[in-house]
Design a protein around this nucleic acid. Sequence first.
DNA 1: GTCTATACGATGATAGAC
DNA 2: GTCTATCATCGTATAGAC
Lengths: 215, 215
Amino acid sequence: MNKTSETQQDTKERILDAAEYLFAREGYRGTSLRSITSRAKVNLAAVNYHFGTKKNLVEDVIKRRILPLNAIRNEKIDQVISAAEGKGKRPDIKAVMAAFIEPTLLFRESGPGAEHFFTFIGRSFTDPDNTVRQVFLKYIMPLFNKLLETASDALPNHPQDILFWRLHFTLGALFHTLHVCSNVKNEFQGMTDKMDGNKIINLILPYVTAGMKAK
Amino acid sequence: MNKTSETQQDTKERILDAAEYLFAREGYRGTSLRSITSRAKVNLAAVNYHFGTKKNLVEDVIKRRILPLNAIRNEKIDQVISAAEGKGKRPDIKAVMAAFIEPTLLFRESGPGAEHFFTFIGRSFTDPDNTVRQVFLKYIMPLFNKLLETASDALPNHPQDILFWRLHFTLGALFHTLHVCSNVKNEFQGMTDKMDGNKIINLILPYVTAGMKAK
DNA sequence: GTCTATACGATGATAGAC
DNA sequence: GTCTATCATCGTATAGAC
């Protein structure tokens, strides 16, 4: 790899890192391209060169994390389905939920910047700007539908439209947690400073599993 | 009431209505005072006269709805506690959850503009601007603590720090729902156009009750 | 191909004249 | 209270240096 492409890679990554951090901290609209390039120590026009528009930039910020994460979550769900088929039984609903929630919460600690990504993603559903929500939905919808199908298979006596909503409640609880762990801890007494992924998994998994199964 | 005070009252209410609508639609930071006064058809300086600052304005927007709502929710919780005491039993956890959730979801349909308020509130926890979250926390914290105490009384075998988190998951599910019902319905297949309060109550209550009770 | 310097049109904040 | 002139900053675009 020559000097030029190293520099290029570095520039593009630095822009993505800075954008991710600032989108998490200030929101999509609240972040100017100038603040991004200033933080990344690159020229303003580099954004236009590498990404074209702000919308393309935020899509690449989201894609960079969510594509590998979705690959893991998909694989886990497939494992749960296969394991059940192997035993000739229905998938276990707790395992189905875990296949979605565990990779999400562990990915959060997978490297520098990943935490910022989840602060950002935890707000995506409620972002005042349609851009963020639409990009995020584009990448989460196939997974949501697969999850709904598998949950429906695990709980055959529950109507799918009820499971649809319960899966939404689960998303809400998870996203709220993702966001709140990073940002509201000082404002709530009783919220400890360091909530590691496994601790949160052990807290949320019984809750959402019981919720999905409720009569 | 003379003409002057009527007009004044009208001006103040119109500003609150416009601010509520725009905060819901565009977010706190994304809403300029100009867009508020323009929508309310009042002069820009009227905001300064009636509210002083943008922060005071948003606090009044929140107070106008949340004070009567909290009064109802508090009353309902007290009723659940009294009813249990009268029978010499512990409060029923489903009734405790209902005391919080039912007034919230029904209030959403209580009048014009209330829906906008909940779109706004559904984003309050994740708003990039601390102002909104802090004002909201100021009015929700006492209720949250009372709810935690009552839930802890209803489920004496569950450690309170676990119930603390489960209550957070419940908040997350509820806020997500409040927001999503108004805004994401067209982007999710399977989400019907009109979700009335009672329908959502019947969907969410079994879910969160089972989640709170989970072993 | 990569990156920089600079400019454009639009929008909103600010403050002073009336 | 209202209007307006001025200024800052936004996303985007382009010409040219290396």
